[in-house]
Amino acid sequence: MKRLDAGRSHPVTFRLNGRERTGHAEPRLLLSDFLRHDMGLTGTHVGCEHGVCGACTVLIDGHACRACLTLAVQVDGRDVETVENLAEDGVLNDLQQAFRRHHALQCGFCTAGILMSCTDFLARNPRPREADVRDMLTGHLCRCTGYTGIVRAIVEVAEQRSGSTTEENEHV
């Protein structure tokens, strides 16, 4: 049992997007600030800092969580994944491509959080109904799109991943 003093920074060693990283954090430092300002990963956005908007959602040990309601020191020894980890070898993954295809984003500020929620959600719910998708999405606020494109993109990726047929709909 180690007591981390308020006024000092303490080492935080964790896996971030598959690599071991170490940073330093006061106990009160929020994970959202730690990722953005100390780890340099500004893809995770901050929209409310009270857990409602969902913009800061990241994966902690594979589970979608609010980074603004998590302390940096809490992820010591854990595995954290952010939006920067989704594209592989520079190629957008299927979810990202579907978001682009379906105009699932406009300003893009809420997008990273939604992508991370979907990553967790689709892993645990391979064949969701549209109602399930919308239910999961109630944990995110998007002010631009009206959600139509987001829902379509997720449903399509779920169908593709689970092997059911979907029309190819690539424009570009």
Binding site: M1, R3, L4, E26, P27, R28, D76
Partner: peptide, 13 residues
Amino acid sequence: MKPAPFDYVRATT
């Protein structure tokens, strides 16, 4: 909206 300072312990028992 940032917390005031506090100490932190991750208890295991």
